[in-house]
Structures are given as C-alpha cells and as structure tokens.
Amino acid sequence: MKLREIAHCRAGDKGNTSNISVIPYDENHYEYLKQNLTIETVKAAFKDIVQGDIVRYDLPNIHAFNFVLYDALGGGVTTTLSMDIHGKSLSSIMCNINLPDIRD
C-alpha cells in the first residue's frame, strides 16, 4: 500500500531544509502512521536526495506529522541546479512510500 492511499502531503522549503507534512485522511490512521511511517522508512525513500538528518514531529492535536529534511535542496532555492528549485515535488516521494497493508 502506498502512503498516498491513506494520507496527503505538502512540501515546503526554508533555505536548504525541506519540510513535508503527512496528514491522514482518516484521523484513526494517525496511530498506524505513528508506528509505521518511521524516520528510517522516510530516510530510505529519500536516501538519494537528503544529505542531512531527518526529524519527525508528531502533532496529535491535528492528527498529523511534520518531517524536517536537512540538507535536502541542493543548497536551497537561490543556488540549486535542480529543476524543482523549492523541492515542491518532494511531497510526491513521500506519497509513494510503501507501507504494510492496514488490517482493520
């Protein structure tokens, strides 16, 4: 199962750091994601792109997660050679992550 089936994501940039939110459509899937969408899982998906650390912030108040990806944007919007200077499309890599099927 792709993450996309149960959650939506938005990427933003500040300097050379990217942040990607992960928001389950169904709030009941928050706990599932907390268990399964680990930093290791995300690191593996972004290993060719992110040079630095990845941190996950949990927001139980809105049933969502914020992943912060350091050294992720080829120097940042002003100096990167990437087509996607802001890393706006990085959210689609997150959506493409494979997760174990949910047993309801």
């Binding site: 939506h8 938005r10 500040k14 928001i23 914020n66």
Partner: peptide
Amino acid sequence: EQMLYEIH
C-alpha cells in the same frame, strides 16, 4: 496542510 507549510 497550510499550517505545517514551511515550518520545522
């Protein structure tokens, strides 16, 4: 989505 946009 917008609340978490560009925050760390």
